[in-house]
Design a binder for these strands. Structure first.
Lengths: 138, 138
DNA sequence: GTTTTATGTAACTTATGATGTTTCGTAAGG
DNA sequence: CCTTACGAAACATCATAAGTTACATAAAAC
């Protein structure tokens, strides 16, 4: 399945914004990400709505951080971007009265819920300043 | 994103095959899953290749279990169906020399690897006879 | 041996959501 | 006013599970 690479891309952008310490345009970010400025605006605007970056129009405008990196976690960005599930596995919901389907879905969902809780917890533990400093795995 | 519901569907089918104790045709399974017999054959054939079910042509033919439920785990079926990642999150791989991208991908991948290991371990712990008996979460 | 019932499989269409693209509107600085 | 920037609508593209059509093949029933 097609992957959602927005989290990876946005983290990349945020750390660069921190290091550059100046407004960066969507065109510049698009070059950096090998994509289109409209894609940048579309995705960055989700972060703007949550107060992690701000945008300024006109000459000298562009994107800047609205919060220091140590106040932003991977979880913050993940939540800003996606409302949908973390997993490519889906459950069926076609037979509301079949106890087997219920048991199957319960078993799968039980595992996925546990895994999702783990991911969200770990994401919440990583602030973006750790990425700027050169992240080392646990 | 579109979900892959094949695991849920196939587990559902396998438990039913166990309970019916007789060959079931793709048409019957398709009715059960609210889908098409060709979709059933396509997915079931992946399980056949791994030796979990067998198919017989002609009158009285259809699908039967090739192993007892207690010798099949969720992990077995999961592995038979998908080679792709469990997660909708993808990493970017566009800037091989950017240390920030490396740190970002490392941080994300670190978490996803841990979560994937958890999912696979849990899937490996659940045999299908537990689903037939009415699964209760941990 | 012909018919019926099955699976096996190729080829094509559909649905979904991130991604990519074009185009126009709008605000801010020079 | 002209250029530079974001904002946003509208549409195309891509990948993949799912759905569909069509036909070949094998096995049992008659």
């Amino acid at each position: 399945m097609r992957k959602d690479s927005r989290l990876s891309r946005m983290l990349h952008v945020l750390v660069h914004l921190h290091q550059l310490q100046q407004a960066v345009t969507s065109d510049q970010l698009a070059l950096m990400l090998h994509t289109n400025p409209v894609v940048v605006r579309r995705t960055m605007s989700l972060l703007r709505e949550q107060g992690y970056v701000s945008a300024v129009k006109g000459h000298g405008g562009g994107w800047t951080l609205a919060k220091p990196l140590h106040q932003i976690t991977l979880l913050d960005i993940h939540r800003s971007l996606s409302e949908s599930s973390l997993f490519t596995i889906g459950l069926t919901d076609e037979h509301n009265n079949c106890p087997i389907e219920k048991a199957v879905n319960l078993a799968i969902d039980d595992v996925l819920q546990e895994a999702q809780a783990l991911v969200l917890q770990r994401f919440g533990e990583v602030t973006l300043d750790k990425l700027a400093a050169g992240y080392t795995p646990r």
